[in-house]
Design a binder for these strands. Structure first.
Lengths: 340, 340
DNA sequence: CGCTCTCCTGGGAGCGCTCCCGGCGCGCCC
DNA sequence: GGGCGCGCCGGGAGCGCTCCCAGGAGAGCG
């Protein structure tokens, strides 16, 4: 047995095989300009023949970049992960990242230990930037990342004075519009089913609901508000409670489409017709909203745009890190269907 | 402005600051033996003071390992991802990996382009091994990874003569036991709701069902079999169909707990009592199975063990790659509750 | 007191890239 | 014909680690 070959050939070997210098091969694989077309072809053929694949560790080390970004899920309750929101947002981020040439890595951070491990991973330079979703109010991870000067973008914010860069939807505005729409259609007693109130998005939607009522000169009642957690089951439970407390309810704003579906079930079980007796509005405009019976009026969150904006912000952060906090609030839009 | 400092200090700087050599610092951060306790403390303090974090690219390059493994999801239909199976398996893999010191990275591979990109990522040495879940029969990715000599372990197999290393549950055996149990309790007409039949796991469960009937001297009828896709909705639909075709059904084996829940709904809607009129058995034993009404009899898949076995196999593959295909079939177990 | 053996420690030699500088050849202009 | 500029190309100098070998300092023993 001769000299033991390592699995993959190196750039040096490709260069030798093609009869050119290292630099030229490097230029070819990076699609850099300044290589004669004929040379480029020779090199490409050598790469082909040898089955060369660049060593990414070496590339990272020399180039001081990882060509990867992490999408961190901090949701300690895994069940939430089953909600369509996650799959939709992951899809949209994936699409937005495709033509940056960066690899998207999902990472779960559930415990303090994992938080620490991830921080080391990121500080160790394995990713160029970090996207965080489903951050709860008390989560310190964004601060830790910001302190380490790592380009970071949140989806949503932890509070009204979030500083770390984020992209968010105009939750309050969306809720306001939805409630205004219900009032316009003559609904008198409008309830709301919120999301978990330790999340700012849920708070904002609740505030929008309250603002719209106030704007119309109505006083909201605490008992017209029921807290849910974005799940269908919580929507069902909350709606049942609300109906018991206020049988006269004729309009409901749910904090998510999933919750709205639960509310729809509860209303049906209670013998109420939608929208004749009670109008229902959801939030998100997931595909789900089009397959309910009746089809759901809902506040559309532009997930596609959110994904794109997050990636754009992240790239800005990577290009000039630590010069500014960047915030983008995307407009929401009421999509009127049959349930209102 | 003096010399521009790079973000993180290097090992060299730590060594200088602690007044020791590079080698010693390396030994300390890798917890290697052969460092005097007092020296170790000095170095640790220097690390602390400088806020040193090892550069992982350099470590990978020099050490020829990435300390990371990828968990690849090839499910083109993202909705499947919402099923509890995924979150459970991810949790169990995460737990099993914790004390190997390796980072778990989830990656989505939906299109051919992403398949190619991931292959380059893996061949580029960014991960030491690959775990694949939800592989469909026709997926070529496992072959591509195997050809590239990358340590790979599948959860489940693509066919009866899968060669790439895998961990699987004894699906056929579990189904057989479940059906035998129903027969023992005097059920006469036993139907089954399968998973998507392009997945071997679903085929195996169906085969177990058929075998058990054959063993009891019964002939299975094609019309007692309805295909689902592991979702609740498909369970509901399939059950309704089955009842229509065979009103005399008194026992059902569903291909997953989720499917069984759908079947339960359909049965209730049809006015059948469970288990008095119809016995229902699920498959998986997810937490879900304990919160149905009645609590679900089900075939337990040892997810915890599956996760551990996958990680163990992967480590074996990494230690001595390409010497053998390793297969582990884990025993399943019937958990009798109230629905049978 | 000298010699060996053990325990620690320092640092050279890479790992496989990218970056960049210097040089070569050729075409064009005066 | 000489000079200049431009388009290509080669390869040195790192990037920040790990691996490993050589060597110093003690300890123990004859």
């Amino acid at each position: 047995m001769g000299k033991r070959r390592t699995g993959t050939p190196t750039l040096e070997e490709v260069a030798a095989h093609a009869g050119v210098g290292r630099g030229t091969v490097s230029r070819v694989i990076n699609n850099a300009a300044g290589v004669k077309e004929s040379t480029r072809r020779t090199v490409q053929q050598a790469i082909e023949e040898l089955g060369y694949v660049p060593n990414l560790a070496a590339r990272s080390l020399a180039g001081r970049r990882a060509d990867a970004v992490a999408l961190v899920l901090t949701e300690p309750d895994w069940r939430q992960f089953a909600e369509p929101f996650f799959s939709e947002i992951v899809r949209s981020l994936g699409d937005a990242l495709v033509d940056t040439g960066m690899q998207l890595l999902l990472t779960l951070v559930r415990s303090e230990g994992e938080r620490q491990r991830f921080l080391e991973y990121a500080r160790g330079g394995r990713v160029d930037g970090i996207l965080l979703i489903s951050v709860h109010a008390g989560d310190r991870l964004p601060d830790m990342l910001a302190e380490a000067r790592l380009p970071t973008v949140l989806l949503g914010r932890r509070s009204g004075d979030e500083y770390v860069s984020y992209v968010d939807a105009d939750n309050a505005g969306g809720a306001r519009t939805a409630v205004a729409h219900l009032l316009e259609r003559g609904r008198k007693t409008i309830a709301t089913i919120t999301g978990p109130l330790d999340m700012y998005a849920a708070q904002s939607r609740l505030r929008g609901y309250q603002d719209a009522l106030a704007l119309a000169g109505l006083r909201g009642t605490r008992s017209l508000v029921a807290e849910g957690d974005f799940t269908e089951e919580s929507g069902r439970r909350a709606m049942a409670e609300l109906l018991e407390r206020h049988p006269e309810i004729d309009g409901v704003l749910a904090a998510s489409d999933t919750t709205a579906v639960g509310a729809l079930h509860a209303l049906r079980a209670a013998g109420r017709r939608v929208p004749e007796d009670v109008a229902v509005i959801g939030f998100d405009d997931f595909p789900l909203a089009q397959s309910t019976k009746p089809r759901l009026t809902t506040v559309r969150q532009p997930l596609e745009e959110i994904g794109r904006a997050m990636v754009r912000l992240l790239i800005e952060e990577m290009e000039e890190p630590a010069v500014a906090w960047r915030h983008v609030i995307l407009r929401t839009e009421l999509v009127v269907r049959e349930s209102s």
